[in-house]
Design a protein around this nucleic acid. Structure first.
Lengths: 134, 134
DNA sequence: GCTTCACCTTCCCATGATAGGAAGGTCAAG
DNA sequence: CTTGACCTTCCTATCATGGGAAGGTGAAGC
């Protein structure tokens, strides 16, 4: 099977996107419908694999699918202003930072409580006290 | 309506857990079925409100419902070893840190790429280059 | 040629926590 | 006795992903 005639399993292996997800991305219109063999098997060429790999990398950076949709459109538009790409990226950076900070805040609070918990066989515990409203 | 005779709306307002979620928590067995009035309205007493508030505080710290289930059991058990509570808490701290670090790693990568993007009307953009595999 | 196994197809269901909404019944204030 | 705010249950959605069933297909070995 050459690089220009891969079925969905090979495309999944080559791109790192599961076959299940490839079908899903097609269904929601993130990627165009794949060409089909006579009996209905999806086939992918090098360009299709490239798109899937792009999507996987964007997912690895935590982009939601709707933003990936925008990035794909920008990618395909050779006249795009790089400012548009940067705007999408920085918006996502802000979202990532906000989420991370929220998690860190929770972690800090909980760590502070845990530090004051004996952690032995005694029942009294400031963690439960806090949750119960002291 | 006294503190010991609240319907679900008042219980939601008092605990900070939405009425929708209170019903859901009952349905999945996180809280026991509420007592009902003659026509089927749920009623909550001070203890019920206290439990709901406990759950909300635990949710605010990012605990998943299954861990909240464990925390509630420990809370109710006056003989619990505080070590058990601490173990649940520290496991969750580790999970929070792992998630936060994953997000921060994404953010760092993306920020580095964005720094090298002109962000003007020119089309060339290292962010897209990276996603496309350089 | 025929079996066999790995693969493909579609369709439905599940996750985790939450919200929205429809249809219908109830309570309390005016 | 009306009206509006509340309650009930049930269904649907989110977001990205996976599991599995039922049935058809491809290619390799014999």
């Amino acid at each position: 099977m050459g690089k220009d005639d891969m079925n969905i399993g090979a495309a999944a292996a080559a791109s790192g996107v599961s076959a299940k997800m490839i079908r899903h991305y097609e269904q929601i219109g993130l990627i165009p419908p794949a060409t089909r063999s006579a009996v209905g098997y999806r086939h992918y060429d090098a360009a299709g694999i490239h798109t899937l790999t792009f999507i996987r990398r964007a997912r690895d950076l935590g982009f939601p699918l709707e933003e990936i949709r925008q990035l794909l459109a920008l990618w395909r538009d050779r006249q795009r202003p790089s400012a548009d790409v940067k705007a999408v990226a920085l918006r996502h950076v802000a979202a990532l930072e906000a989420k991370a900070e929220a998690l860190r805040a929770m972690s800090r609070t909980l760590q502070a409580l845990a530090e004051h918990c004996h952690g032995d066989s005694r029942p009294d515990c400031p963690i439960l006290d806090e949750l119960a409203g002291s």
